[in-house]
Structures are given as structure tokens and as C-alpha cells.
Design a protein around this nucleic acid. Structure first.
Lengths: 234, 234
DNA sequence: TGCCTTGGTCTGACAATCAGACCCAAGCCA
DNA sequence: TGGCTTGGGTCTGATTGTCAGACCAAGGCA
């Protein structure tokens, strides 16, 4: 057995970590292009680091072109570096994410129909029948619904793999821009209504312990949502 | 749209990073229980950090019980903390990992049969027909074979999700202890032979562009390897 | 315009890391 | 056993990164 070797370790400073957090927030839409960054004093409180470290991080953002200074504030640039993906590329990303969901979700939900105790399946059904009062509440219920199914499949590894894939979709700029764009209100409302119905269908199949019916309901749900999202990416 | 907030950032020192690298190597079998750690001067060269940082990390290992000092060397303890998982729990981990593979791999390989250009499928077949001269070379070919299939499915997200799952299996202590235990030589040889045949089967189905046959060949392969691994976990 | 917020700059203290030197103990081999 | 090599232990001084806080100038808003 050969003697093991180790790769070099890089020194990882607080300022670099803060900078990457901010870049991530810009990339996934939490910090919107053209808007002001939170104040340094606010950031150093939230990150729980010294202000000099925050300033160091922000200077790195300015150098890399993610922000510009106007007046006494720092603003996210209108055109974020590396985000001008071609439309084809953005559609491909959404397609790829939904393809991953199509590979994983029906099988996983099928396992839930097979394995989960009745009281767990009943809880899932209760959640599916809850009525959301707006897009933000729907998103919350939607996430809980899917996470509950993942948790109920009795395979923590599969659950984790799926959760990461779902997080990628929810954190993508395509998803955020679709949900919050003012001119998409009607379509978003359609997606919410259609998804609520699909959740109910899925939950009924789960409650009946019917693996095949569950898999079909999940697959249909994914096809519907994916089509609506791709349709709106113009 | 609500104003975003950030989670606290922890200060991450070089010594902590080195310590975690060493713990990981102990956990996944690269550093064997009872054997001596590499010398400090060797480690600081490999990690590319100062010796004081390496010493700090090693002191943390000693405090946490991963190593003990005997003579002028540091040795991995015979009983590594947190590694005495119950046998049931270890089998469950392996089962869970293989279940994830069963969800993902047949579908992914099926996509390759559908989508990949012929020259790519031919490359995969060439790799499958290569003869390994030992366990280490087999592991290398095995990894390349599976990674090549993942890359050929034309969905980078799925490919990445799968690669992470595969890495979890290959890095698990169950896998390492099975492959390198002296009393498993014959069984390991059987696994290698059986897997080589299965790879050839899979590659032929891919070359034929037959999605259904590919999915079946992959599923059979996984059932075989899983059964052999679980059988040997005693 | 006045007041508050925010960014810019600086200070001094502390923590972490670095490279290197030196010494002693342990291990190995003739 | 003696000598050499290897390895750990300790220390030094310099550099970098982080911290908390103070003070001033600029910007924004009622």
C-alpha cells in the first residue's frame, strides 16, 4: 500500500469568505443588479466580523467588477460579470435541472409510497391541501412539501442528493427572475395553481400507498412546471 | 422583496484545515489505524504550510483522540473515535449509497445510449475492454468508466450530482476496508472479475444505442456489486 | 439647512502564520 | 555500543490578518 500524500492547503481569510458570500448573493439574485449593497456596519454585524474585513471584501468586489461606488454607497453593477449567459444556455440549465429532478423525484416519491408509515403520508397530504395566500407563502409550502417527501424516503443519502439539486434550482437566477418579475404575475399565478393541484394528486397517491400512481403523478407535475418555466424564458 | 441577510462567517485557520484533512485521511483509510503519521517536516511540505501550523493541527488530533505519541512519532490510534459504527449502520450506509446509484445510474446510462455520439460510445467500450493488472489499476479504470458515462449523458448537473454520490461510496471506510483487507483477497478478485464482465455488457448495450438494454445491464451490475459488498461486511 | 447615515482613514492590540535556528531524544545500522 | 540520521520540541522575530474603536468627511433626506 503506497504512502499517502496531501494536497496543499490555502490560507483562507475572513475577507475572502465574505467576498465570496457577497458574490454568491449577487449571482443567485439575492442582491439585485443596480441596487445598493447593505451598509458596511450592517454587513459586519451580520457576518460577525470586523469592519476592516468587510471593507477588504468590498474592495475585492469593486476590483473584480461586481460593484461600483456612487455617492457614498456601493451598488451592484447593472451587468454582473459572468452572468450574461445566452438564452439558450439558460434554458439548457433549467432543462438540465429538471432532467435531474425527473431522474430522482419519481423514484424517490415511489419509495415514500412504499415505505413511509401512514401518519407520515397523512402529514404530507395535509401540507399539500394547505392554501397559500401569495407567492412567498407558496414557495415556503412548496419547499416543505418536497423536503418532506425527501425525508420520508428512508434514505438520507438520496434525500441529501435531492435537496442539493432542488436548492440549485431554487437559487438559480432563472427561477428568481421568473417569480418576481412584474410582468409574469399571471403566469406565476397559473404555476402556483397548477402546482397546488399536482401536489394534491401526488399526496393522494402517496396516501393510497400506490407506487406506480405516485411516480406518474410526480412525473406529470415536473413536465408541467418545466414547460411553463421554459415558456416564460424570453 | 425583502432585504437579504447574511449568516456569520467563522474564522478558518490553516491549522484547522490541516487537522480536518488528516482526520478525513484517517476516516477513509488512507492513514491506517496503528501506523505512524508522516513526519511533521514532510507534512508541512506537502500541505505547503509552516511547521508550527502542522504542529498545531497534530496537537488538535492528539487532544481529540485520533493519534497518540509513542517514542518520537505520532501514531493513529488503533480504535478511531466515531468509527465503531454498528454493523447494521454500516450496511445501511452501503445500501443507501447503492440505492442512490440505482435511482441515477440506469437513467443516466440510458441517456448516454440515446444521446452520445458513436465515437464517444466507442471510447467507453474501449475502456471497458481494458484488462486491469491489479486492484489499484482496476479502481482507476472503474472510476474512469463510470465518470466517462456520466460525462457523456449531456447533462452537467446530473453528471455532477452522480459524481458526488460516487465519491461518497469510494471514500467510505466500508469500501476501503473491503478492498484492502488481506482476508478479502479472493472476494475482491471475484468483484473485479464480475465488474469487468458487467462493464463489457454495459458498453455493448451503449454501443448498440439500446436504452432499455443499457438500463437493464447497469441495474444488474449494481445489484451484483451491492450484494457482494454487503455479504462481506462481517 | 441640519441631522443622521455612511464611507474613509487611522490606531493600537491581538492572533495566526511564516521561516529558520538550535537542541535533545529516539531510532537505526554497522 | 557508537555514530549518524531522523524526528520532535522550543524559541525568535517578522509579517499578515483581524479586531474594536475613534474621528472626520461626504452624501442623503426631511
Amino acid at each position: 500500500m503506497t504512502q499517502t500524500t496531501f494536497d496543499r492547503v490555502e490560507r483562507r481569510t475572513v475577507a475572502v469568505e465574505v467576498r465570496e458570500r457577497l458574490i454568491e448573493a449577487i449571482r443567485n439574485g439575492e442582491l439585485i443588479a443596480g441596487t445598493a449593497l447593505p451598509a458596511e456596519r450592517v454587513l459586519c454585524e451580520q457576518f460577525n466580523v470586523a469592519r476592516t474585513s468587510v471593507r477588504e471584501a468590498i474592495q475585492g468586489l469593486a476590483t473584480a467588477g461586481f460593484i461600483e461606488r456612487r455617492g457614498n454607497r456601493a451598488f451592484v453593477v447593472e451587468v454582473v460579470p459572468g452572468l450574461e449567459l445566452a438564452l439558450d444556455s439558460r434554458k439548457a440549465t433549467v432543462r438540465n435541472l429538471f432532467e435531474v429532478r425527473r431522474v430522482i423525484e419519481p423514484a424517490m416519491a415511489g419509495l415514500v409510497a412504499l415505505r413511509a408509515p401512514e401518519h407520515v403520508r397523512r402529514e404530507i397530504a395535509d401540507l399539500a391541501s394547505r392554501h397559500a395566500s401569495g407567492i412567498d407563502e407558496f414557495r415556503l409550502i412548496d419547499r416543505q412539501f418536497h423536503q418532506m417527501i425527501a425525508s420520508a424516503c428512508d434514505n438520507p443519502v438520496l434525500s441529501e442528493v435531492y435537496s442539493k439539486a432542488l436548492a440549485s434550482l431554487f437559487n438559480s437566477e432563472e427561477f428568481a427572475s421568473l417569480l418576481y418579475a412584474e410582468n409574469n404575475k399571471e403566469e406565476v399565478s397559473n404555476i402556483v395553481e397548477s402546482s397546488s393541484h399536482a401536489h394534491v394528486e401526488i399526496a393522494e397517491a402517496l396516501l393510497a400507498g400506490d407506487q406506480v400512481r405516485t411516480e406518474k403523478a410526480v412525473a406529470a407535475h415536473l413536465r408541467d412546471v418545466e414547460a411553463r418555466m421554459l415558456e416564460r424564458l424570453i
